[in-house]
Design a protein around this nucleic acid. Structure first.
Lengths: 150, 150
DNA sequence: CAGTCTTATGCAATTTTATTGCACGCTGGC
DNA sequence: GCCAGCGTGCAATAAAATTGCATAAGACTG
């Protein structure tokens, strides 16, 4: 992992749609060397995958919400059961078990409040193990970065 | 946006590294038609960009944390000033202004606790406008999805 | 219902890109 | 100073992307 690898990763984290030829020119390598480096980075696992990022609004998910959840019972099985429920929800983009008073944090991508209503029923009321939950609707996104600084 | 477009978007959200030829076979189109559809989706903006997703651990960011922040002063300028500070931090992956008691939620990707210490100093103590903040370190990631369900 | 316009499709030709073998040069260990 | 290992560039080849073109499928209109 030298300077060139970091440069490649930084470029690919911002825009992985360019051709290998273009990439090689940006880093000052021949196309073949550049390709071999990128493949090495992929095989090594530091590049997990290449994905398309969609515009949430145009994909019909205009609302983003963060939900903190406190469980009643804190055993491993109860935690797992709740997380399994949450993971199965397509509106749940991220689900984290966390330290502190809060047990679980969910990040939701919602079509509308009706979808949120249904999700609350399934996750938070219906015979599950939730003591309390607190919803924060996202008003403004100041930063939303998939890239990891190197 | 018909069934084929949705299929293409779903495939590309999971793996945008495959060739157009492979993609066209998966959806049952000729390569040229497939390419034209994908380009239309890109130009329309629903595909925002193609990026490489890195393994955070291998990229040296082993810790993830969520921080809720309450500001002392809630005016637009105070909010903006704090968000500007937060956005400038490379450890801050996401920054949201939200509804509720909490004003701002940050998602952090940290190398170690020392980096967190420095960040706290800069964002939460040093003459800023923070009444209270609450940190949740992520213990387990049950779901972490970039794809948006269509 | 026929006509027409718009739009998407497949095919084929062409251009561009990815991929591989190979020889060279650089670097570190001995 | 010599050798092994690794990365590099070049060139040839294979594969993929891109484009023009003719056709087919709908959608709208009269």
């Amino acid at each position: 992992m030298d300077r060139l690898d970091r440069k490649l990763l930084n470029l690919l984290q911002r825009d992985a749609s360019r051709t290998n030829v273009a990439l090689s020119e940006e880093v000052g390598l021949s196309p073949s060397s550049c390709l071999r480096r990128v493949r090495r980075l992929s095989r090594s696992g530091i590049i997990e995958r290449i994905v398309a990022i969609l515009d949430p609004a145009r994909a019909g998910r205009v609302l983003k919400a963060l939900v903190t959840v406190e469980l009643k019972l804190h055993g491993e099985q109860h935690m797992r059961r709740f997380l399994d429920l949450a993971v199965a929800e397509e509106a749940v983009a991220q689900a984290y078990a966390v330290t502190g008073e809060i047990d679980v944090v969910l990040v939701l991508r919602l079509r509308d409040m009706e979808e949120f209503d249904g999700l609350c029923d399934r996750l938070f009321r219906d015979r599950t193990n939730v003591a309390r939950f607190f919803t924060m609707m996202v008003i403004r996104t100041a930063k939303d970065e998939t890239a990891i600084p190197l």
